[in-house]
């Protein structure tokens, strides 16, 4: 791992992690207060949230402090020497899949997903990719529906 010490640099990944944590902590404190803290005799719904939020800010704060004083790896260095485009493609496929799942149903959305995954990341030859993409989801769908009586989403077209 490349561990450059860049003091007070904005592309320090530690700093950004800490800032996100601090923001989340602040939000949790605010939610806790909104839900009412109650009293120590009868703590309310927001009691534990409030204190957890404070702890989050403390820990996030200490991450930020050490990022500022000791520096840390830059955001870019985290993705050095790796094929960063591949996970990004995969994330894109998964997001597209979750958009398609309900309207199209399980079969119509998972077969294209499988095909994309098999072809985009490390291409598998077509003669292997197509059978796998078609047969595995269909087979699983059949087992679940017929043997285990679990209905997968069938979508607008009612396929599945």
């Amino acid at each position: 791992m490349t561990n450059q010490t860049n003091k007070l640099r904005l592309n320090n990944s530690e700093l950004w992690g800490g800032l996100i944590g601090l923001a989340l902590g602040g939000f949790v404190i605010w939610s806790g207060m909104k839900l009412k803290l109650g009293t120590i005799n009868d703590p309310g719904s927001g009691y534990v949230l409030f204190y957890t939020g404070i702890l989050m800010c403390v820990f996030a704060g200490s991450i930020i402090v050490s990022a500022l004083t000791e520096g840390g790896p830059t955001l870019a260095s985290r993705w050095e020497n790796v094929r960063w485009s591949k996970p990004l493609l995969l994330i894109g496929c998964l997001v597209a899949f979750s958009v398609a799942l309900e309207p199209l149903g399980f079969l119509l959305s998972s077969i294209p997903l499988m095909l994309l995954l098999l072809r985009l990341i490390d291409p598998v030859r077509w003669t292997l990719a197509i059978p796998i993409a078609v047969l595995v989801p269909t087979g699983m769908w059949w087992v679940l529906k017929r043997l285990l009586l679990i209905q997968l989403p069938s979508g607008l077209f009612g396929i599945g």
């Binding site: 079969l107 059978p131 078609v134 269909t138 069938s154």
Partner: peptide
């Protein structure tokens, strides 16, 4: 490949009928 495509078609048709 052909057999597989046929089988998949079959599965899809069956699904359509049973809904």
């Amino acid at each position: 490949l052909k057999t597989i495509a046929f089988a998949a078609m079959h599965a899809v048709m069956g699904a359509l009928l049973s809904t």
